[in-house]
Structures are given as C-alpha cells and as structure tokens.
Amino acid sequence: MNKAHAITHTAMLFAVAVVLSFMEGLLPPLPYLPPGFKLGLSNIATMYALFFLDKGKAFAIAVLKAFFVFITRGVTSGILSLSGGIASLCVMLLAAALFGDKISYLMLSIIGAIFHNLGQLAVLTLIMQSGYALWYTPVLLTAGVIMGSVTGTLLRIVMPAFDRISGGTK
C-alpha cells in the first residue's frame, strides 16, 4: 500500500469514527443510566484499524478523534478523549501480545472499553486533584463490560462495510 493510499484510508476510517460518534449523540439518552455508560460507537473504527490494519493507523485515528473533540467540545473533553483512547489501545495491544490468538475479539473489545473508562478516570482524578472519583470505578467496570460487548458485536456486524472501504487491501 503506498503512502497516499495509507493516508486516505486512515482519513476515511477517521470520518467513519466521527460519523459514528455523531450518530451516537442522536440517540435519545437512556434513562436510569449513570454517567459513564457511553456506547463509544466510534471505537468500532479504532478497533477495526487496530485488529485488521496496523497499530499506527489505530493510534492516528484515536489522536484525530481527540483533536476533533477538542475543537468541538473544549480542552477538558479533548484530554479525556485522548487519555481514554490511548489507554484503551495500549491495553488491547498488550492483551493481544500476551494471549495471542487465545483471546477473542470480543474480549479485546471489552478490555478496551474498560480501560477507555479507567484511563479517563485516571486523568480526571489528576485534573481534579482528588481521589474521590475513584469511587466510580465499579460503575465504569460494569459499563466497560456491557458497552465493550455491544461495540465488539457491532464491529463483527459492520466488518464487511469496513472491508469494502479498505478495498480488499487489508
């Protein structure tokens, strides 16, 4: 794959990520769900890049996503998006390296979602300079398992579409 192809490809996946997160914003907020229970649909694009393309593209998309959040929703949200995205990717890479093919895509997705939440919580704790938010860890763990399963399953469903974007060059 030449350089222009690689750049265009990353850009298209990034566009998919932005559209997914926009669509998620259109969904009516679910009642009775505590904050932190976010679907994280745009992670589908990052996970696709990580699992089937290469880690460079996945990190590029995570950074671009955070930059997009930064210009649309402000500094704090941008930093949180970046910390969650990077933590999630690093831990998914680590888990894949440790367990090889024995770990399923679904489990990787769940681990990614959990550490997306935990990474954000860690940075939030730093910003607030207090440990009180750590009280929230159990809620975020549960959210990670549920939302990670949902996004992992959705990735499985929309994969043919992603493969079409990739033009069979994966």
Binding site: F51, Y105, L141, T142
Partner: peptide, 30 residues
Amino acid sequence: MGGRSFASKTDIFVSLAVILLAAAVYMLFS
C-alpha cells in the same frame, strides 16, 4: 486473520467475574 475467534466461552466467565467484582466493590463502598 489468524486463528483468533470472535468470541469464546471464556469471555462469559471473565465478564461475569468482572461484573461480580464491580458489584462487590460497590457494595463495600456503599
């Protein structure tokens, strides 16, 4: 792509373990 499967039985146990752990910690806190 390799021999990695989409989901496995282990996933269910690991997920349940994490949720149980979360519930235990939550109860401890509250």
